[in-house]
Write a protein that binds this DNA or RNA. Structure first.
Lengths: 213, 213
DNA sequence: CGGACTATGTAACAATTATCACGGAAAGCC
DNA sequence: GGCTTTCCGTGATAATTGTTACATAGTCCG
């Protein structure tokens, strides 16, 4: 679906110059993907760079045994750096991207991504800012895994999820959490119970309600 | 120190166009840093992007308690993506970079890094390739930490070190390894002993000789 | 040679995480 | 309601990693 210029102006107010918005409206494809939809899987080629307008997308890193560790979330006006490198280097994806909720995005064709780099300084800025953010995300992820214990990691995991969903009540199973933290369901269940006793959260079947800040 | 055009031509044969080499020779500062020298520390600003010509540089990620986990190594013709993002966003460094051996590099002033992006397509390629490589490095690091046990990590750590040093006999203490894998010296000593019994390596004071492929 | 310092070995124990083996509770479905 | 499936709780036990506490051995240097 094509996009209206007005809509883009509102969305990217102040961030992109007019001519760029104009181009964006011409070549950008608007897509709305439902919760749970896969935007990309490992091994696939990427033919366009998505910019998230609304909703959120989680980026997972798979290993050989079917586990998929969470790397980070993409939210409003984020773009995926992986897709950038993949596009500009025409390589296959090494990650999985899944819509956490209904997500609206604009897909930019590869060749435009490159072309605009030199034409629009705001686009160049955007691209490099994207790289910067993703680098930060990965570094933070590494910090978590290398320096923190599982109970802390679980807590920040849940907190990030709350942020990304804008909602204290998370609909998620212990199994799924375990997968994204690359551990086992039993361990997560135990730690969750522990956190519940500490009044950090409340457990229900398939749901976790976060308490306090 | 300034650099001779001839030298650059040899070094970047086929990778950079002539005019770019010419510019590189004009504004690039050649530096030779000794083993153990810090190229950058967390919190510092970066005023130039280094391209490694010879030698190797390790990139470490510090936490609050003084530990510094190894992220990856930079080697011949690598550039640091962190420095790129730092430069282009004028942010402080979030990592430490240390010369593993005597290392020769060319420092490119920030403004040129940006300017050349649109002027020289080979430079643009180089910059994006750099981002891509660093992303890969970080993903590999994350794989290690999330999916592998310490003994495996130790082994690949040593193997990478062999690669980076081009030498089977590593001059390193258990303490240092422990630091870079974010664990304690005793644990490393134990695992090393274990690996020695499996004939994967031979231990001497301050040295580790890797055996086999 | 005699400290002083650094690096390593190692036992013993604690904490954390992983696995196995269930049982039971909730939800979905005829 | 009864059956099935999914999700969760939990004990028992193992494996891995972290900590404490020393002992020993090499190196440096006077």
């Amino acid at each position: 679906m094509n996009i209206s210029l007005n809509y883009l102006q509102e969305t990217f107010k102040g961030q992109f110059e007019y001519a760029l918005l104009d181009d964006l409206a011409k070549v950008g494809q608007q897509k709305i993907v439902p919760t749970g939809a896969y935007l990309i899987r490992p091994g696939e080629f990427i033919r366009s760079v998505p910019i998230i307008i609304r909703g959120s997308v989680k980026i997972l890193r798979p290993d050989q045994e079917g586990r998929e560790a969470l790397l980070y979330y993409l939210g409003g006006l984020d773009a995926c750096a992986m897709s950038l490198t993949c596009c500009l280097g025409s390589r296959r994806s090494e990650i999985t991207a899944v819509a956490e909720e209904e997500t609206e995005l604009i897909a930019i064709p590869v060749d435009k991504v490159d072309e605009w780099l030199c034409r629009y300084s705001t686009w160049k800025q955007f691209v490099f800012q994207t790289y910067q953010k993703r680098f930060d995300n990965l570094l933070t992820t590494i910090d978590e895994v290398t320096f923190h214990k599982l109970d802390e990691r679980l807590l920040t995991y849940l907190q990030k999820k709350v942020q990304s969903c804008q909602c204290r009540e998370l609909t998620i199973t212990h199994e799924e959490i375990a997968n994204e933290l690359a551990t086992s369901r039993e361990v997560i269940s135990r730690l969750l119970k522990q956190l519940e006793k500490m009044n950090k959260l409340k457990l229900q079947r398939g749901k976790i309600e976060m308490v306090g800040a």
